[in-house]
Write a protein that binds this DNA or RNA. Structure first.
Lengths: 112, 112
DNA sequence: CTAACGTACAACCTTGTGGTTGTACGAAGC
DNA sequence: GCTTCGTACAACCACAAGGTTGTACGTTAG
């Protein structure tokens, strides 16, 4: 999710298709890179749930999912409001009596 | 910014230091990786403005910047509310009369 | 003073990521 | 039916990113 938003081109694509749907090639025309590259970006965004593709004739119309953006907001809120506070206290207690935790509390690498 | 949040370990660090400040080695104890690796993550977060480091004796206390999270919210809102709407219309008009734009509207690769 | 701690940083390895080109294939257009 | 368009996908390349170990250095503890 944040990974998908980490790329400038992808953020731009999201912004564009939130305003109005576009075909993949219409999107490709907007950027100084190959069609295949843009196609990959769209695929990444689709996997992250930030856009949806819908076949329409021989075209593939891409639309932004505002819902996903709201989900991103939620994740930010979780970070900000110390959603981990409880877990932290448990960790702290464990750290005092036993050895420190040996795995990354959430996902080791990209996941949300 | 989103790039910094794209990594799970980093998101966790942010969550932790937003709850309460920690030294770098205290953070390092929490994860199944070397001290140097955690140090790098903290450096990335610091560059992105998501945390601040403050020397305190021989330690370096790390604190989360809630401000930065709010900035992230703002960026998401910009995406969601079609902040590009105006620019898009200009692009569309140009596309009809001349060739399509040849550079990525915002940053070509990571920047916000 | 010396040892240990907390940190910083460089070198290196491996994998992931963004980019390219080329090929393939169904859907429209003529 | 043949060509063109829009898309999908695989192979490949260069570089960034996350990880490791090793070294260095100021600060605190004995």
């Amino acid at each position: 999710m944040f990974h998908a938003l980490a790329d400038g081109t992808r953020r731009d694509i999201v912004a564009v298709v939130l305003v109005g749907e576009r075909s993949v090639s219409e999107l490709a025309d907007r950027y100084p890179m190959s069609f295949a590259a843009v196609q990959k970006h769209v695929a990444v965004l689709e996997r992250a749930g930030l856009v949806t593709k819908e076949r329409r004739g021989r075209e593939q119309r891409v639309r932004g999912r505002a819902e996903a953006l709201r989900e991103a907001h939620r994740l930010l809120d979780q970070l900000e409001l110390g959603w981990r506070a409880r877990v932290d206290r448990i960790d702290d207690l464990l750290a005092e009596t036993a050895e420190p935790p040996t795995e990354p509390p959430t996902e080791p690498r990209e996941g949300a």
